[in-house]
Write a protein that binds this DNA or RNA. Structure first.
Lengths: 139, 139
DNA sequence: TTATCTGCAAAAGGTTTGCAACTGA
DNA sequence: TCAGTTGCAAACCTTTTGCAGATAA
């Protein structure tokens, strides 16, 4: 998904694409990584300009409403990854924190009617991506 | 898993089963529910006696080391469910917060070698259990 | 007996809120 | 124009830590 698409999704809900949000979104979308709020804040400062940490939190809130973000709980820390629509799962590299989408889900065809009515499900794989399987994380 | 088994797992790691831990563990294991730290603290106070909230946090820490607990992030809140060993997945009832284990996992047989080296994976289903599919949560 | 545990109070750390100034549409 | 946004500072809330007394093994 590109920035223009996000912009129109924002506008559709009466949100605005400000300069600050564009900086944060660029880093968030282009990196393919998951971030804690603080990490994304730091990265934006590095690559663009200083933004308020509050702005990052508020953007996560907005993106959550647009369902463009997925949270991960890892070692007690909350990470977020940019996530465009369509049913998919995740592979999270524990070294470089890049997230790859996985399509095709066996669970969609399995019958869980005797357990309950499923609203949604999540499936996340954690490990080491191709680039990070050497000694030191390189990507 | 019963309390005796947990007790021996604790002892194996030089942890103790105190009166307070027994109260918390009884509620935690017998309920089949997931709890935030505060919720478990409140429930133990109700059913047994007052314990320190700190004790609940420290027990979660110990159980995490023993891999007897699984955390869920739901609406920004961290819930924990008691979880004995063996590979399984979860069905979480969004109404009554009971957690059912699901065995049999198609992902175990799928090849992800072109994505990366998988360390572990998680799969959680969320919905409404049989008892809660009426109007008001009843279980 | 003694290493571990408890629980209070305080500190820490992450997240949210209030508000005056600013800005995208 | 003006509803939505920013960013600082303060408030808030969950989680962790220090410590003196208690206790499981």
């Amino acid at each position: 998904m590109d920035l223009e698409t996000v912009k129109s999704k924002l506008h559709a809900m009466n949100f605005r694409l400000t300069q600050e949000r564009e900086w944060v979104l660029r880093v968030f979308m282009e990196s393919g990584e998951m971030f804690t709020a603080m990490q994304l804040y730091d990265r934006v400062k590095e690559q663009y300009n200083k933004v308020g940490l509050t702005t990052v939190y508020r953007l996560f809130e907005v993106l959550t409403k647009l369902r463009l973000v997925t949270p991960f709980l890892i070692d007690g820390e909350i990470y977020y990854t940019f996530c465009s629509g369509g049913h998919h799962h995740h592979f999270v590299c524990l070294d470089c924190h890049r997230v790859k989408n996985i399509y095709g889900c066996e669970m969609d065809t399995r019958d869980f009617s005797e357990i309950g009515k499923i609203e949604y499900h999540r499936m996340d794989l954690f490990g080491h991506c191709e680039n990070c399987q050497g000694s030191v994380p390189s990507c």
